[in-house]
């Protein structure tokens, strides 16, 4: 009975969030575009078989966009359309795995630091300070070079690079929540640490975490593409937008479409995620809306 009531309250809340989200036209546009991209990811093999990304056909090389090849062909005569479509799952997989992976690892560390404090907090935070003292993508680049450039190692390297940010964010959220009256009340009522964290702290931190994770996905996709662009990511002949741009550099005067199209693919993906993230922020937390 009690559980049912709680569930229906959650549904009402979700409906309210969805209603606010839909009122934001930019967010809704982002959501629709993103859903289209997800459809492409799911039905990639139906739209165009994977073999098309690998099949070279020398007579067709560097054909500009036409009816047969909607996005033209590259230097081996492979269909750019097929490669763009089949690169989408890679980029989105990297974006989601890295964001949620670093949320999981960084979030656990950060919440533990904020909740327990003391020496544990100090040790972990100093270690993370060290990681983030190396600016930009340097750590990721070194790690990919050491582990060997491929998609799995790219994901590992990017997660390591993103942990510190998530841990800091979760720590500050945990600190601010642990000061709240209801946590003190729960403590006074004799709830265990674990119960307080999962029953009270996590649900209250959820909106901040969801917003920041969504917003980080597009950043991750951009850094994954730029690492692939300098040759330290997904390796050819696997299709990847950043790597395609790198290949296109040699042919840019004759075949500009080779570098316009993958860039637009990255742009559309990351902008739709950003638009969705902005809308999600306004819908989840009206207080934050400026």
């Amino acid at each position: 009975m009690k559980k049912n009531r709680r569930q229906s309250r959650a549904i009402v809340r979700l409906k309210e969030i969805w209603r606010r989200f839909c009122k934001n036209r930019i967010a809704l546009a982002g959501f629709i575009v993103f859903m289209c991209i997800m459809m492409v990811v799911v039905f990639a093999d139906v739209i165009v078989p994977y073999e098309m990304t690998e099949k070279p056909s020398p007579p067709d090389r560097l054909t500009p966009p036409c009816a047969e090849h909607p996005f033209g062909t590259d230097e081996f005569g492979r269909s750019v359309f097929a490669r763009i479509i089949h690169a989408a799952p890679n980029s989105l997989f990297i974006g989601f795995t890295v964001s949620f992976g670093s949320l999981l690892v960084g979030g656990t560390l950060g919440i533990a630091c904020g909740y327990f404090g003391g020496r544990f907090d100090n040790l972990i935070m100093r270690f993370l300070d060290m990681i983030s003292a190396l600016p930009g993508s340097l750590l990721a680049i070194v790690m990919v070079a050491v582990l060997g450039p491929n998609m799995r190692n790219l994901i590992i390297a990017l997660i390591v690079g993103h942990i510190a940010g998530f841990a800091r964010m979760c720590r500050s959220v945990a600190l601010s929540i642990s000061e709240q009256e209801y946590i003190k009340a729960a403590k006074a009522g004799g709830s265990s640490d674990l119960r307080i964290i999962f029953r009270h702290a996590v649900p209250n931190a959820a909106s901040t975490l969801i917003i920041n994770t969504t917003m980080s996905i597009s950043g991750v996709i951009l850094s994954a593409c730029s690492l692939s662009f300098i040759g330290l990511g997904v390796q050819p002949p696997k299709p990847e937008w950043g790597a395609m741009l790198n290949d296109a550099r040699q042919y840019f005067n004759g075949s500009p479409y080779l570098m316009v199209i993958p860039g637009l693919a990255i742009l559309i993906t990351s902008i739709s995620i950003n638009m969705m993230g902005d809308g999600l922020r306004d819908a989840l937390d009206p207080k934050l809306k400026s």
Binding site: P256, G263, N274
Partner: peptide, 22 residues
Amino acid sequence: ALTLSAVPSFWFGMMLIYFLAY
């Protein structure tokens, strides 16, 4: 700004090279 923050900087650079330089 929303659009530009989603643009990969290396691609933006390539576009600049193509239009302004080439």
